[in-house]
Design a protein around this nucleic acid. Structure first.
Length: 277
DNA sequence: ACCCAGGGGCAAG
DNA sequence: CTTGCCCATGGG
């Protein structure tokens, strides 16, 4: 691999970073700057290659999951009109491999917030409680100890509202060993879900976000208001309870249902109009 | 002024 | 098993 060059077939950097998975990258022209963990990285896509900060090639490859065989994953997608439209629109989005705590904490703050607000809170938390990194405008995501030490009132000043208590309590549990985020990687998905749902502010939806984005459970589907709408459309009217929607997502979206979900989500969000039946 | 946002938790029916 | 309500904030 040439220094600073990373092969990136079947990849769309911009859409991946704008698809509501991570919230701390910023673009100047076509050059994206951010942190992968605590490593400052600059990334620019030129066709099927990425120009990256020299020395970060492997890190970038792993973070953006450039080893996922996208054509094979697409082959498992269902063939309905909704999914086809989403794929046409969003081809090249990859499900990023995120740091566990950063992902968990960020999605605890995400409840009943728009993507733009999640980004604001994330950047505020980083600015207030993260560590400065040479070569990066954005600070690291504060670890559990830093969030726990900050206390709920300080967290609320970052615009978290009622989410401040949940984030603080969860941070205390993580810091004090009440839960082991690394150990969850070794659990079967149902057990892992159960473990995550013990945490304050974590229910099925956020647990599924964390499992998909930080534990590489690519079959898991977080059902938010957008996905619920799309899946209701796929179901074709009638009464569709949350339980029915979950069931549908598990059984009808294939073995990479989490990938399908990510495409449906981003397509619905950017088109602002649900695909016609 | 009103409405909604990548929800969760708990009480009540 | 469902439905209703509250939590609190920012942006359209």
């Amino acid at each position: 691999m040439k220094a600073g060059l990373v092969p990136a077939p079947d990849f769309d950097l911009r859409m991946t970073l704008e698809s509501g998975q991570v919230f701390h990258w910023s673009a100047t022209g076509d050059v994206w700057s951010g942190l992968i963990g605590d490593v400052p990285v600059s990334v620019e896509q030129r066709g099927g290659e990425l120009v990256v900060t020299p020395g970060t090639e492997e890190l970038v490859t792993r973070y953006f999951a450039l080893d996922h065989a996208l054509p094979a994953i697409y082959a498992t997608f269902p063939s309905d009109d909704f999914t086809r439209a989403a794929l046409d629109c969003c081809r090249g989005i990859r499900v990023i491999r995120q740091p566990r705590w950063e992902c968990l904490a960020t999605f605890i703050t995400s409840s009943m917030k728009q993507v733009r607000h999640i980004r604001q809170m994330s950047l505020a938390l980083r600015a207030s409680f993260g560590r400065e990194v040479v070569g990066s405008d954005v600070r690291t995501y504060p670890d559990a100890g830093a969030i726990a030490a900050a206390g709920p009132e300080m967290l609320r000043q970052c615009g978290l509202g009622f989410r401040a208590n949940n984030l603080w309590k969860t941070a205390c549990l993580v810091r004090d060993g009440g839960i082991d985020l690394d150990a969850i990687a070794g659990l079967e998905t149902p057990r892992a879900t159960e473990e995550l749902c013990r945490l304050p502010g974590v229910g099925r939806k956020i647990a599924n976000c964390v499992l998909l984005f930080a534990y590489e459970r690519l079959d898991v589907v977080p059902v938010d208001v957008w996905i619920a709408r799309v899946l209701r459309g796929m179901l074709g009217g009638g009464p569709s309870t949350p339980a029915q929607i979950e069931e549908f997502s598990r059984t009808r979206l294939g073995s990479y249902a989490g990938y399908v979900q990510q495409y449906l989500f981003h397509h619905a969000r950017i088109s602002r109009t649900l695909p016609a039946k």
